[in-house]
Structure formats: structure tokens, C-alpha cells
Design a protein around this nucleic acid. Structure first.
Lengths: 221, 221
DNA sequence: TAGATTGTTAATCGATTAACAATC
DNA sequence: TAGATTGTTAATCGATTAACAATC
């Protein structure tokens, strides 16, 4: 029987919690590297991020062995590894649908561009917006999206429309071969099998905060 | 020994997963009510939201008994209960710090206002923005925030600044007595004890999507 | 009534943590 | 070398699910 790749746990899906923490590791390691920190133990990283050292080591062990006994981790080396694990060793082409305030905020977010995310085109239905440029990208009529997708390989579709439009946008994107969707509309979108979707539900986040504000009060009524 | 309140599980903190699902229930019930649906079983709700019926009943049982055997739940009644559980039976006063694209998007988001969230003032450091109105709210100099907070009870502070500024903004808010913070900056903010914080980390969400895009590829390298 | 569906308990599943041999 | 810290295993903890008595 062939040997398991060293340090990697057997064929298993990566737990959701691990996936959720990878970007946090990435963010913090980037910060540390900027500060010139060379070396880091799982104990230190855990303290910085409010996690246990064991959890961090366990998380990383899904992907390999990146540390050294008695030393810890080299920040630059671990950062590079985490980037590769996430998939930041390539660029991603995106389209943005919806050029309202939120769409403009997303489109103008410098942090994405830096990491290799390229918004290639923006679509909207509003005639007042169509033809304008936003941070160097032209806003096209939504009706041209299918044609655009046919001609341009697109990794990620961003939905920043009102919720009434979002399901249709989602279908057009999927039909055009976009297999990953980043959704900002407050809707429970249905996607075809094989299409990945990640949501930013602003209101849900605010309501979680509000629940916690009221948690004590309600507990003792 | 006094009787436990009926249907409520003993004194225990509400699990994170339950808190995360409450806004989802709220959102879907609102939708159903708009459509005129009167009645709903946990099985149906589970199917709609891709959860098990048992999980939904278990979640609700933390707060009471809202259904009826053989019938299910009355949509309006359950919606009202969920609103109360979350704390949507009152209004919340907010300040927004940062009037860039993202801040403007948040400030203009109609869905919040409808639910009782009121942005009372906006602060920024940019002289070009100060003095302008955004959706009826004046943009003030950030230097006036401490004074403003002293004079105006504020439930929630929204941070929509670049990450360089966010820790300072956070401190000024907390010092001014704001005990709940909704943070949109990509930073690991430190808050004093007793201050609640909820993050929207856009990049983290995008990176989770990217990880999933690459999951198969990486699995077999 | 008979059928349906709740609220809750016990069983299962999965994720986190503690502990430690390996080893730099 | 002695000290430190990893990667991993076993133990623990917590969350989800299945099952069912209660009952509308």
C-alpha cells in the first residue's frame, strides 16, 4: 500500500472551521511579515489570534508539516505555504454585477487587486451607470453578460444587486459557466450542482451582534 | 425548587451555531410572511434552508415553545417571536466612522433603516467629505466623535475605515461608551472587556471561496 | 378519531484540547 | 547537550441527529 503523503491526514474533507481559520492565519502572517517578525511558535500565534496552540498545529497538519521542533515556524515560509494552501498562487478573473454603492465599494477595494483578484467587467441595468468607468473598468449593460461570459473565462461572479434581481443574476452567471459566486445580496440563492457560493449577509451579521447585545437582558426577563 | 421556564433549556449560553441561524430564520420567515404563507412545519423550514427539522426545533427550544403538535408553526407568530428573541422590538442608534465607498454603502442600506437601525451621525477625517450629507446624515470631523458620544447615547459603532485607522477608532468608540462594534476593516481589533464586536471581513470570505475553488486541485497534487 | 408534528431525550457524530514521544 | 516546540494520538467536549412520547 502506498505511503500516505507525510503529515497530511487521510483523504478527508477539510473541516469548515479549518477553512474559516486559514484566511485568519494568512492575514496575521502577512501582518507579522510586514513587521519583520522572522519566527513564530504555535503558542504565540494562538495567543495573538485567541486560539489554542493545539488547534493551530492541528489545522496546519491537514496540509503538511511546516514547522520545526524546538524552533516553531518561519513566518515567511509559513505565509508562503498558507498562500499556496488557499490558492493565492494564481490570479482570478471576476465580474461584478451591480454598480450601486456596495458594488462600487467592492470594485474599488484595493486589498483584492493586490492579492491577484481582477475585476474585468462590471454590469448593471441602470442606464445612468452604463458606459461609466469605475476604477478603470467599464460598466456594461446586464443584457450583455451572457455574451461577455462566452468570450471571457471568468472564475468568480460577484452579485451586488438588490435581492429581487439576485437569483436571476445567479442563473445567468451559472449558465455562462461561472462556477463560483460571491453573493452580497440578502437572499438564499439556489445554485446548480457544482457551483460554489459564498455569502456576505450584512444584515445577518448585524442581527447576530444585536442578539448578543440583548442576550443578558432577555435571559433574565 | 422553582420550576424552569417551560421549554427553555437550563441556564446555558446559547451556542454560536444557534445565534448564527436566528437571522436566517428571521430572513426566511419575513419572506414567507410577505408571500402570505400562514403555516409552516419544521420539516418544511428545514427543506427551505437546508437544515434538519430536528435542528430547527432544537434551536427554537432554547427560547421557548412556539409550535403546536400536529400543526407546526404559525408564520406570523413565529416571526414575531424570532424578532423578539433577536431584539428587533426596539430601535438602535448608530454612528458610522468612515465615509468612503464602503461606509456610504452601509449608510445607504435601506434594509437596516426598515428594521429600526438608525445611523445618527457619520464621521471621517477627509476635509473633502466633512460637511457633506449622505442620505440625510451630515458627515462630521472625526475629532468631534468623543464630544458627540458624550452627548448622544449610541448603541452601535460601525467602523468602515482603512485598517490603519481602525484600532484607534475602536478605542475612541469604546472610550465614548459604545459597547457594541460592527467592524468592516480587515483588522484583528482589540476591545476592552464587555465590548461586543462583530466582524465583516470581506477578504476572509473571498479567501474561503478561493480555497474551496482549489480544494480538489490541491487534494491531488 | 386518526394523522401530523412538536419538544425533548439519548445516541451519534465531529471538532477541540491535552498530552507526549519525536526531534530540532 | 538541554530546552523548546512540533505533529499526532487519545480523551474530552459540544453540536447535530434520530427517535419517540406527548398532544393538538
Amino acid at each position: 500500500m502506498p505511503q500516505e503523503k507525510k503529515g497530511r491526514k487521510k483523504e478527508m474533507p477539510i473541516p469548515k472551521g479549518v477553512v474559516a481559520r486559514l484566511p485568519i492565519y494568512f492575514r496575521h502572517l502577512t501582518e507579522l511579515q510586514k513587521l519583520g517578525t522572522e519566527r513564530l511558535s504555535s503558542a504565540q500565534l494562538g495567543e495573538d489570534l485567541d486560539l489554542t496552540a493545539a488547534q493551530i498545529r492541528s489545522d496546519l497538519s491537514y496540509f503538511g508539516s511546516f514547522g520545526q521542533q524546538g524552533y516553531g515556524y518561519n513566518v515567511s515560509e509559513l505565509l508562503k505555504q498558507v498562500q499556496n494552501i488557499i490558492g493565492l498562487d494564481r490570479t482570478y478573473s471576476m465580474v461584478l454585477v451591480g454598480a450601486g454603492n456596495l458594488g462600487k465599494a467592492i470594485g474599488g477595494y484595493e486589498a483584492f487587486r493586490e492579492k491577484g483578484f481582477q475585476i474585468k467587467a462590471i454590469f448593471d441595468v441602470d442606464p445612468l451607470l452604463i458606459g461609466n468607468y469605475h476604477t478603470g473598468v467599464i460598466i456594461k449593460p446586464f443584457s450583455e453578460l451572457p455574451d461577455y461570459l462566452q468570450k471571457n473565462k471568468t472564475d468568480i461572479g460577484i452579485i451586488a444587486t438588490p435581492k429581487e434581481a439576485s437569483q436571476e443574476v445567479c442563473q445567468v452567471l451559472a449558465a455562462g459557466g461561472v462556477s463560483s459566486i460571491w453573493n452580497f445580496s440578502p437572499a438564499q440563492l439556489t445554485v446548480p450542482d457544482g457551483v460554489l457560493i459564498e455569502h456576505i449577509h450584512l444584515t445577518d451579521s448585524l442581527l447576530r451582534l444585536v442578539f448578543r447585545i440583548n442576550e443578558q437582558r432577555k435571559q433574565f426577563v
